[in-house]
Amino acid sequence: MRLDDLHCLVAICEHGQLSAAARALGSTQSALSKAMGRLEAEFGLPLLARAPRGVTPTAAGRRLLAHAQTVLLDCQALQASMAEQRAAVTGQLRIGVLPALTHTLLSPLIARFLPTRPMARFRFDSQLSAPLLDRLATGELDLAFLALPDVLPQGMAQQSLGPLAMCLVASADHPRLASLRSLADLAGERWALPTADLFLRQWLDAKLRAQSLPEARVAVESNASPASFASLLRHSDLLGLATLSMLRQAQGHGLVALDGPDFQWQHELGVVWRANAQGDSLTPLGREFRDEAIRWCVARTF
């Protein structure tokens, strides 16, 4: 039995005429007649009867029609399911990620993901949270791993992944390291910091204002990742900001976290993607990667 023959039966019963069914299927009356002949020969029963204005299904034809409609719907569902599965293991996923998460989150995730999806391709860009949100909004990225904003922009959805531990850092050879125990002790120090529009800098500025302390004496500032200051901090007496995870990596060699009650804090990390009232804009590949990231991060800290 051919699926095409079942399509022909359904079309004939819907239209009541071979000519109309043939036009709907883009076929010919002769082809439909042959299809009906094959079905009647296979089941040994007449399936169609002549009617004043065309044809109508017999009792056997009506029973076969009901089964044919179910079979064809199941075939459509199967095709859709397999197309979704194919999309989940192929295609390209464009990911934005905080520099601090490239080694601790994204690289291990992709390594776990690729063996079961050898046709998938990944492109990731490492930037700070604000530009990642901008690129996500314009459609340049599919999803982003970043520090969650206090207010999520409209048209986006988020899922928390846990806290990112941050700290104030200096060179292990800093000449005044032992005396830097409170924010007040830092008043005369010079800094290498993110620009004032980035949340790390804003956190430090707010801490200093809360204790009526003067603004940080910024010697070097940049909108790049705090990790980009690592070499500068290592070879100078400047203070800076870093993640605790960076200090455990090679780029944190020669740096230490300052030891003081106000020198460490946490900011919530998350994955963000575009969404609307109808649902998210992610492909099946994107949804699977997002969900795998959420599961993987449950028992981890950054």
Rank of each mutant, 00 (worst) to 15 (best):
A41I: 06
L64Y: 12
P118N: 04
A120N: 03
L141G: 03
M166T: 06
R86F: 07
A250K: 14
W273G: 03
S225N: 05
S225V: 01
A51V: 13
T28N: 03
G270M: 02
T243G: 14
L105P: 08
I110P: 01
D142E: 10
L72K: 07
A157F: 04
A242H: 06
A192K: 06
D173W: 06
A83K: 12
S27W: 02
F43A: 09
A68G: 07
W296T: 10
R176E: 07
R94E: 13
H253D: 10
D173V: 05
A147E: 08
S81F: 07
T283G: 01
R135E: 11
C167P: 05
S160C: 11
M156W: 08
T102M: 09
I12K: 03
P46C: 10
T116Q: 15
L146H: 02
Q127L: 14
A11M: 07
T56Y: 08
A196N: 12
S81P: 05
G37H: 11
F289H: 06
G286P: 04
Q76W: 13
T58R: 10
R217E: 05
W296K: 10
L128I: 07
L152I: 01
F199W: 12
V298P: 06
P163I: 06
K207T: 08
T283V: 02
L186E: 04
